[in-house]
């Protein structure tokens, strides 16, 4: 059954640009981008509970690869290089940080985005000469949408595959107890690294695919920490351990954030913070699981 439903749903989603307005298409691109980011984030952080705030480090790096190469290379080649850059960055970062426990990892991952922003700023000023670049890629909004939709589908498909694989089982064991994981024969470093690299490669590609929308990029614009926070909130809101959780969290929250940031720019950050705290404390397993739990609780009461 699902072998019919998924392709049909994907085809329908791919056809939306033919009927959508430019404004709607813009919203759609943003939405699918966050579906991809939240799902890719959850690929690693969901089962392992290593909360990464490095999303924008990879996302931004992807955009910068395009900004730096768009005048010298064909677009498909740039995407390939982007994937390589993302994987290489994740490998270096992973090797040096995945031994860190809990809050240290969170802080380091947050610092990473800042570090990369500073590095690029330094490079642009001292070596390139000016801070800021233009991205001129011959690609339409529809093209961007289709690419991001494909990346989202690949991300969710890959997550489904991982969930059923040894890697998926290993990651869930690691999330519960690393000591037990190691004593059961799970090579901790290799498993965490594999998932982290896969996740980060997708995040980096997402940045590259979304980048032509910016036209003009500057480190301060691209490496905006809000992207990292939004990704975490969305994934947790929908449930980072469920295949569709991050996607289902990303869609309503993206729309809510769009609305709020357009109409109430002053209260928007407060809302963001309140939601973050609310989700973490009230629905640690995601709002979906929380609602299910409430419903089950009610049924049991009435039964």
């Amino acid at each position: 059954m699902k072998y019919v439903i998924y392709p049909v749903a994907l085809a329908l989603l791919a056809a939306v640009p033919f009927v959508a307005s430019d404004y709607a298409l813009g919203l759609l691109i943003g939405m699918v981008t966050y579906v991809t980011l939240a799902s890719a984030w959850a690929m690693f952080s969901g089962p392992t509970h290593y909360v990464s705030l490095a999303t924008v480090a990879f996302y931004g790096a992807g955009a910068y690869v395009v900004a730096m190469l768009n005048e010298v290379m064909a677009y498909p080649m740039i995407l390939l290089i982007t994937a390589g850059v993302g994987a290489a960055m994740a490998l270096v970062v992973g090797l040096s940080t995945l031994r860190l426990a809990g809050v240290y990892f969170v802080i380091f991952s947050f610092g990473l985005a800042e570090l990369i922003r500073q590095l690029i700023t330094w490079y642009e000023i001292n070596i390139y000469g000016t801070l800021g670049r233009y991205i001129f890629v011959d690609i339409t909004a529809r093209g961007i949408y289709w690419q991001m939709l494909a990346l989202a589908a690949i991300t969710i498909g890959l997550t489904a595959y991982i969930n059923r694989s040894r890697l998926g089982l290993a990651l869930r064991v690691i999330g519960d107890d690393e000591v037990v994981a190691a004593h059961s024969g799970i090579p901790l470093a290799r498993m965490k690294l594999m998932a982290f690299v896969l996740s980060a490669t997708i995040l980096t590609l997402a940045g590259a695919i979304a980048s032509p929308r910016w036209v003009y990029v500057e480190p301060a614009i691209v490496f905006n920490p809000t992207v990292s926070f939004l990704t975490v909130i969305m994934a947790l809101f929908g449930g980072a351990n469920r295949l569709w959780g991050p996607a289902l969290g990303a869609i309503p929250l993206f729309l809510a954030f769009e609305y709020l940031s357009a109409h109430f720019p002053d209260v928007y950050p407060i809302f963001l913070g309140a939601l973050f705290i609310g989700v973490v404390f009230l629905f640690p397993n995601g709002v979906l699981a929380g609602i299910e739990g409430l419903r089950r609780g009610k049924k049991e009461e009435t039964a």
Binding site: R166, L169, A170, V180, S184, G185, I186
Partner: peptide
């Protein structure tokens, strides 16, 4: 199952 999967 995990020890069966990741063991010898």
């Amino acid at each position: 199952m995990i020890t069966a999967v990741f063991g010898a």
